[in-house]
Nucleic acid binder design. Structure first.
Length: 562
RNA sequence: GACUUGGUAGCUCAGUUGGUAGAGCACCUCCCUUUUAAGGAGGUGGUCCUGGGUUCGAGCCCCAGCCAAGUCACCA
């Protein structure tokens, strides 16, 4: 590996520390008893504290120095004074260890006393300190000036996502997003648990990827010798549990879809699904708006959330509009009672591209997606979707062409999807078969038939309402982030770079060398068992790529890992 | 998948018509005992994303590729 000058300097400091008998990575517990936050909140002049964290900035002025220590809760100023730390004649702890051998990014533990500086800053006067972990790579160092302007911000999205650890260290606002994310999950759990609903886990590796229209990841189980799919949804398993007698079950579900990536789609994402027996989708709408109002309050302390140019209010209740009303409102076209051909012609007139694989449901969905969806900024329930595009949803009690389904739209995007669940096993089989026909017409997202799921329904499932919420999307709204990558710790990225391409001979030599770290050149050559020519080529390749180093002492040649 | 923009020091960024690679911060050396983005003086640091091409000469022009962001398409 090629080291920068800064990295080499830090490795040299590491060696010097060791030479002084200081372990840069000590094993023993450090008895922390305060954090930066509770020092500031409960400040007491002269109080003794033990704190630990990363050294994040230093202002050295000869025999004294101010620095900032960052822990999990924020930063606190610390004051290093030579004569406070080194009470005797030996001043090396300050002059050498602190001033020369510590770096920004190092973890240190501090024992000290609280005081306020002449300008009133709450500060820890260091009485003793200990290196807890040396950082070998320099962190980016954004700084904020008196006007709140950030200098040298660490902003490159590629580096921030690939090195989220560094992003989190230096960008407090990034950490805040993830704190809110966890608050959201906790709020939902609390809301559900208080109502007696039961958190469960269902399979991620599934023999049939069901519950949604999407392309799955496929994998293979070796000893069973069967294909398995990573789940695209957990719906069908949760409903099996309702069949099994639970009144309400929910799961935060990591789902996987083998589709495109963009700023709102990551190959793995988190959905929450909940199913409650003896309820219908009208009840679920009430439940949903109560839930989101509660979550917004828990996360942000207010029901209002800013998203880009919009201010969204999650305070219940939300408007409810049927899909037919919505389409009529925005296009003037009434879809009720229209044939597939009439719908296709209407869509064409609206300038929507259509093809013959599209059935009635898909056509209506296209019209809605194109002309209506984007207009709903404030939370709005869109209800009563066409039957064809909702194969797991109960037929509408008043209209056999429709289903009892709603989606919740916010800022023109869907964040929740809910049904009165289909529990008629014969109807369910017919819907699956209709999906097969769609697949034959070329719809590559049509659902598979899940016979085991139908068998479960045949035992009887109580009337049930279910809802799914896109957790990533919801937290994007609650934290004003237009990109899903900002709300995932580790968004999927293409691999960073190809490994150094080595010949097989060079790889073999390197493997031998790695075990020993350093060995005599002649011994390594003998172990490698290569011809002179091949040996020469292999060792030159390794040294050229800075993987190995050849050193000459008085009587021997040594090879070591670089 | 298409298009647009970008990739230069650890970080943020300049880089003129194609003519010896720059700044600020960081880092290193020296001075400095209550400061607060930035004390003073001096210094080090580069695979200009990769590979080809044009040229006497390429960070810059051309071609191909890699990675990212954005827009669109597709997809929930």
């Amino acid at each position: 590996m090629q080291l920068s000058e800064l990295e080499i300097v830090r490795r040299e400091k590491l060696a010097q520390l060791r030479a002084m008998g200081i372990n840069p990575y000590p094993a023993d517990l450090f008895p922390v008893d305060h954090t930066s936050a509770n020092i500031k909140n409960n400040f007491e002049e002269g109080k003794r504290v033990v704190i630990a964290g990363r050294l994040m900035s230093r202002r050295i002025q000869g025999k004294a120095s101010f620095a900032e220590l960052q822990d999990a809760e924020g930063r606190i100023q610390v004051y290093f004074n030579r004569d406070e730390i080194c009470t005797g004649e030996d001043k090396t702890l300050y002059n050498d260890v602190y001033k020369k051998l510590l770096d920004i990014g190092d973890f240190i533990g501090i024992e000290g006393e609280l005081f306020k500086t002449q300008v009133g800053e709450k500060t820890v006067m260091v009485k003793d300190f200990k290196l807890l972990s040396k950082a070998l790579k320099p962190l980016p160092q954004p700084r904020v000036d008196a006007e709140g302007k950030v200098h040298d911000a660490f902003t490159d999205p590629e580096q921030r996502y690939r090195q989220r650890y560094a992003d989190l260290v230096v960008n407090p606002h990034v950490k805040e997003v993830f704190v809110k994310r966890t608050k959201l999950f906790n709020a939902m759990r609390t809301f559900f648990n208080e109502r007696g609903y039961f958190e469960v886990e269902t399979p991620i590796l599934q023999p049939i990827p069901g519950g949604a229209a999407a392309k799955p990841f496929i994998t293979h189980h070796n000893s069973l010798d069967i294909p398995l799919y990573m789940r695209i949804a957990n719906e069908l398993y949760l409903k099996r549990l309702i069949v099994g007698g639970f009144d309400g079950v929910y799961e935060f579900s990591k789902n996987f879809r083998n589709e495109g990536m963009d700023r709102t789609h990551n190959p793995e994402f988190t959905a929450m699904e909940i199913y409650v027996a003896y309820k219908d989708y009208n009840w679920m709408m009430d439940f949903c708006e109560q839930l989101l109002e509660y979550c917004a309050l828990q996360v942000n302390g207010t029901t209002q959330a800013t998203f880009g140019e919009h201010t969204v209010d999650f305070k219940a209740p939300y408007k409810r509009v049927t899909m037919a009303e919505s389409i009529e409102h925005f296009t003037g076209f009434d879809i009720t009672g229209k044939t597939e051909d009439e719908l296709r012609a209407a869509a064409k007139d609206m300038g929507i591209s259509v093809d013959n694989s599209m059935g009635k449901g898909k056509l209506i969905d296209e019209i809605f997606g194109e002309k209506c969806e984007g207009n709903y900024i404030q939370p709005t329930f869109i209800t009563d979707y066409p039957k064809e595009m909702s194969p797991l949803c109960k037929e509408h009690r008043d209209n056999p062409e429709l289903t009892e389904r709603f989606e919740l739209m916010v800022c023109g995007k869907e964040i929740a999807n809910a049904y009165s669940e289909l529990n008629d096993p014969i109807d369910q089989r017919e819907r699956f078969e209709a999906q097969l026909k769609l697949a034959d017409r070329g719809d590559d997202e049509a659902m598979f038939i899940d016979n085991d799921f139908i068998r479960a329904l045949e035992y009887g499932m109580p009337p049930t309402s279910g809802m799914g919420i896109g957790m990533d999307r919801l937290i994007m709204y609650l934290t004003n982030n237009p990109s899903i990558q900002e709300v995932l710790f580790f968004p999927q990225m293409k691999p960073e770079r190809k490994a150094v391409a080595l010949t097989d001979e060079a790889k073999a030599v390197f493997a031998l060398l790695k075990k020993a770290e350093k060995m005599e050149l002649s011994a390594l050559k003998e172990q490698a068992g290569l011809s002179n020519k091949k040996w020469d080529k292999a060792i030159k390749e390794l040294t050229k790529n800075s993987l190995a180093k050849v050193e000459k002492t008085d009587e021997e040649l040594y090879v070591s890992i670089h």
